[in-house]
Design a protein around this nucleic acid. Structure first.
Lengths: 183, 183
DNA sequence: TACAGTTACTTGACATGTCATATATAACAT
DNA sequence: ATGTTATATATGACATGTCAAGTAACTGTA
């Protein structure tokens, strides 16, 4: 139920096409809930069937016509209901494939584990850099979407990404330490 | 591809029924990769079709017969290949529904946000307690599965759970702080 | 004695997510 | 001239995950 509601939520800002939505996703929600274009298009047609959005074709010269979706009153109502209806448990099932490999770590050569842990750390550091540059451009993003009052909350979600990535780096470094000790 | 390989990995310890596998899951892998019984049964029959496991019916008195699955040589080979084939990117897409709601936080009453953040912290603390008691029982678990040499790696996965939960708690507390400041 | 809970296995429908491919045109670079 | 990237939408096959219910018989509790 997250993706359709994330889409409805973004459409509360302004009418957008599926392509537009993907752009906004990639610079915001994508960091904690990924969506592919194909999924967005599918959800949009399902939301239209339910009457939560309406579409309007905008002819364009030279490039394919835009299909712009707008939120309906029922769509807005449904979104706000979802937003206010926090699930029983706020802890969603974690899916961490990297941890599965660590779980079976005794079957891997230690050098391979050390190599992969270092690679993991490198990738997390790249992610951190991305979050930090994103953090700087948040204000412009808020202005572009005509939603300056959202900036505060967007900043909180970015902060979570940063804190979690830093924690994962610390964990991986401890793993390297313990692997070195156990040799 | 994670679930079938997690199952194959557990079957390297000893032959088990789907029900057994679920028990082991619930006390270990479930913390970073959840699986429902129905999923495990489905994967087992698919793995059998591929020739990665074989099954044998163990008649039981009084209760339904057990269908015990054993790893084949090809199954073991396939598992080890998967284990050694780390994916290009070690950072799987994160799915954090709680963060979606924070993203749209301006649409929620502040008291509701504060309430949910506190609930989030409480749940994470409960999770931490669980991890800590689990940590103490890891040795017995390792002995029960006749795999004392795995304990070291299992402990690393538990450590990740603890570190990540602690980080999430810190984030939520910072959110509460910032919400209080912004009032 | 009735009911709930546990052991054990299975199926079906559905929801969600991924990957590959298709169409079409403009702008830009090699 | 040719190829790549960006704009824009869409579909199909498949993989994966969730939810609900069904069968069957024992064990423990009220």
């Amino acid at each position: 139920m997250s993706l359709p509601n994330a889409i409805l939520g973004l459409l509360t800002y302004q009418p957008m096409s599926g392509y537009d939505l993907k752009q906004v996703f990639d610079t915001s929600i994508n960091f904690f809930w990924t969506a592919q274009l194909s999924q967005i298009y599918r959800e949009l047609s399902m939301l239209e069937k339910k009457g939560y959005v309406t579409s309007r074709i905008e002819p364009q010269e030279g490039r394919p016509d835009r299909k712009v979706y707008s939120l309906t009153q029922e769509g807005n109502k449904s979104f706000l209901e979802w937003l206010n209806r926090f699930s029983e448990s706020l802890l969603l099932p974690v899916r961490d494939e990297f941890n599965i490999r660590i779980f079976f770590g005794s079957r891997l050569p230690k050098e391979e584990l050390v190599f992969q842990l270092n690679k993991y750390i490198r990738e997390l550091r790249l992610g951190l850099e991305l979050y930090n540059t994103l953090d700087n451009s948040l204000r412009q993003y808020a202005e572009a979407l005509l939603r300056p009052e959202e900036e505060f909350y967007w900043r909180l979600t970015v902060k979570k990404g940063i804190i979690m990535a830093e924690a994962a780096i610390r964990w991986a470094e401890e793993c390297l330490q313990e692997l070195a000790n156990s040799r």
